[in-house]
């Protein structure tokens, strides 16, 4: 992939969701830039991940811990494993600068996380800030805003 077009950006978003649902987490982590972040704000229109807490605000190291933990022999909360399903609406390109290799794309989603008999439905919007690095499209920030981000949830163990 060398050029940034609307199609490459949209294809990227679909492929990323598929990776998560197929539990190819190691591949998924490689989609992030080294300084990339995954952010799930706790409140609506939360401007600041640093001095306001979030559901998740994790760099690559923390995401790596999360992923390795999922398959640990003594990770009892994943015995049996959780599974996920993403249903994406057609993403909209919020901005794109092909020359700079930067794009922001927003995708409405429904997300289901299941574990044995329990199934939870979440709904929200994912905003990807993408950058082209050495001809490869990468995630600089994935921001996941839940429509009910301020609700009291049970365990959320996988990635939206």
């Amino acid at each position: 992939m060398n050029t940034l077009t609307e199609k490459t950006v949209l294809d990227f978003v679909y492929a990323e969701a598929r990776m998560l649902d197929e539990q190819r987490f190691d591949d998924w982590l490689q989609l992030f830039t080294d300084d990339g972040y995954y952010w799930m704000p706790l409140t609506h229109d939360q401007p600041d991940p640093r001095l306001h807490t979030s559901l998740l605000y994790e760099d690559k190291l923390l995401l790596q811990v999360r992923i390795e933990r999922l398959h640990g022999k003594r990770t009892f909360s994943q015995q049996p494993h959780s599974r996920s399903h993403h249903l994406l609406q057609l993403p909209t390109l919020e901005s794109m600068d092909a020359a700079k290799g930067e794009a922001v794309v927003r995708t409405a989603f429904h997300y289901v996380e299941t574990r044995v008999d329990e199934q939870q439905l979440y709904a929200g919007w994912a905003t990807h800030t993408l950058v082209m690095q050495d001809g490869v499209l990468k995630i600089k920030l994935k921001k996941v805003e839940l429509v009910n981000c301020d609700a009291a949830f049970g365990n959320i163990q996988l990635f939206m």
């Binding site: 799930m40 640093r50 001095l51 306001h52 807490t53 979030s54 559901l55 998740l56 605000y57 923390l62 811990v65 999360r66 933990r69 990770t75 009892f76 909360s77 009291a152 949830f153 049970g154 365990n155 959320i156 163990q157």
Partner: peptide, 19 residues
């Protein structure tokens, strides 16, 4: 805030162990 997010949250891996 980082402590609370990592240890005592619905999305915390440490809390997942406890829960």
């Amino acid at each position: 805030l980082m402590y609370t997010r990592l240890i005592n949250a619905p999305t915390s891996v440490v809390a997942h162990d406890d829960t």
